[in-house]
Amino acid sequence: MIDARNVSKTFFVPHQVKALVDVTTKIAAGEVVVVIGPSGSGKSTFLRCLNHLEIADEGHILIDGIDILDRKTNINKVRAEVGMVFQSFNLFPHKTVLENITLAQRVVRKRPKEEAHAKAMTLLEKVGISDKANAFPDNLSGGQQQRVAIARALAMDPKVMLFDEPTSALDPEMIGEVLDVMKTLAREGMTMVVVTHEMGFAREVADRVIFMDDGAIVEVGTPEHFFTAPTHDRTKLFLSQIL
């Protein structure tokens, strides 16, 4: 599903930082991969490279066999297949919850109004906030907003879902409701790449955990391997600091 080969990226502003150094990994369809690592380790950058929000300097990224770093690729088509959930929700504040979910369906997928509407309602049901369909995002709690954001991404019927620290901006009591939605998704067989600090989620849901530091993948393994017998010193240090 996702095939990243030797991906590198350097930021020059505000100062030169090697954000990604020769990152190579494959993610199979239906797999749930959790990316962990200290802040500034490049995990978010890696995730954003996967749907071209950041453009990798070197290497190849293949999504479902399509090289998104090829200039000839229509990136909008690829992005429609790759759902993304942001730390800060990024709902459209001028549109109602329902309109947030139907907009891209109508504009990108060209679905008729009724179909988009029905799809949105089904998804709102799924994330448990169908009663807020006509509310504006600013009137929702953080947890509710994030669930709408997940529904918005799912409405496009994506093949992959990318989660960029989806619970980091939430109040503690709202983290659970968002994680529950994500767990349901994982159980249904969605391919997911999740950048998170929620070790409980990683342990419970992940098929594979990737530990990144200084822009490179340090260690890859199953959750059991990670939380019981990590091999690298940096992994051990990181885990000892957060667990």
């Binding site: 749907n51 929000l53 990024n90 459209f92 891209a104």
Partner: peptide
């Protein structure tokens, strides 16, 4: 906010 553009573009717009 840049996040608005990113959200829209990430949906394929």
């Amino acid at each position: 906010h840049r996040g608005q553009t990113e959200a829209a573009r990430s949906l394929g717009m």
